[in-house]
Design a protein around this nucleic acid. Sequence first.
RNA 1: GGCCCGUUCGUCUAUCGGUUAGGACACCAGGUUUUCAACCUGGGAAGAGGGGUUCGACUCCCCUACGGGCUGCCA
Length: 481
Amino acid sequence: MVSERLTRLMSPQTTSGPVVTRFAPSPTGFLHIGGGRTALFNWLFARGRGGKFLLRIEDTDRERSTPEATAAILKGLTWLGLDWDGDVVSQAAGRDRHAEVAHEMLARGTAYKCFSTPEEIAAFRAAQEAAGASYAVFQSPWRDADPASHPQAPYAIRMKAPRLGETIIDDKVQGRVTIRNETLDDMIVLRSDGTPTYMLAVVVDDHDMGVTHVIRGDDHLNNAARQQMVYAAMDWPVPVWAHIPLIHGPDGKKLSKRHGATGVEEYQAMGYPAAGMRNYLTRLGWAHGDMEIFTSAEAMAVFSLEGIGRAPARLDFKKLESTCGHHIAVMDDAALLHELEGYLAAAAKPALTPLQRARLLQAMPVLKERSKNFPELLEKASFALISRPVVAEPKAAESLDTVSRGILKTLTPRLQHASWTKETLEPILNGIAAENGIGFGKLAAPLRAALAGRSVTPSVFDMMLVIGREETIARLDEAAA
RNA sequence: GGCCCGUUCGUCUAUCGGUUAGGACACCAGGUUUUCAACCUGGGAAGAGGGGUUCGACUCCCCUACGGGCUGCCA
């Protein structure tokens, strides 16, 4: 699924050129909801400025990367409606280029060969700890070693990080972040087995792909300082940074499995429409005045990095549902039905029959205004989905007593030739109620039981209109018998 | 441990030195009603704590507390 990586194609970008953003997940599982939001912000920002939104799979960790995970991530993005430009880039496919850059840095003198073994480094740390130091950055003895003293052995390539001064990350979300260089180590960019590390790969890929704005989780904020060393070592322009806070669970702790749904696909299976998810996720950590309910196009028009908050936001299902409810209410009926069928498939529920689909489409106007998610909509649509004989639930059956059944019997003849509109039906039902000396509510209950087999349903008129005269009379006759 | 980031109603947030601190979700009360919703009206609800700076701080600075992140030949 991941195509050949893009080869070097962009000229060095300038900050005034077209916007290029990217989403770069590791394929180690499904698309995390936090990752989905990161992708969303990148998408909104690029699309809102006529720029490009690229997708790169960071699969350099062959141990943990799987093609299934890559497929799951693509599927999640697709469901969310986040379309990317060009081919999906595989980071692993760029090893040679990454190694080439590492050697170039070697040639420039901004990196050096380090012959220290992992064991020696571990020993160094243990010694530091034993000496009472809480922690110390590893200082390779090879940093300034005479090449003549280099042994014939495998070596890693490390950055020659500045020991003095400070590195400043000019971040659009976090502001100016200053990191003292002494806290930065000579990070390894090429392992002793010749493979590149993530720190090198991201920078090379972002540069080669022409990425102008790096919008990612703030767990990378400190990494940005390290990565900036590579840009400097290669004389490459540094992209605009925007480190966004992570999403937390309702309890304020980092979102994890015990909070329930962490994967985007789970939200589809729970029956939330993509447009509602996008709206909710956009507002989670970003705001533009009092703007609450909006389409993605509207969001793109005003989305800015400056509008992103600095504190982690908590997931609130109540608000998610409310937001989705607004979107469901205004969605096009056919589109809604289509997405609902996608939900059915995602939730491994039986597909709709042609008759059910037709009735659902007809009932959509009355159903969509009162549903916050698809399960709820389907619940309200029950009357349209069932087929005769209608089996009344216990609570509904109670309203089908002898008297009520008698009333229903007198009703059907009058429906026989009535024109099938609410305007005609309403006086007929009101008349029946009046003749029997009962309020309309008393008549509605047995009607609900007969038409839907339930005590909670949409309006009786709406149900009659959707299932039609023939089916209405048939259901009433069966219930009255 | 060190370094970095964060902290406004229960939740998401507005405010970018001067406001009765606004909106949304949720909650409570009332209204409407054909059940459930939806809808309408009203209500309670916030600047973590302590120091500064200033005529004036939610807003700027410092400290503390709490939360998060980074600190790997993981990404």
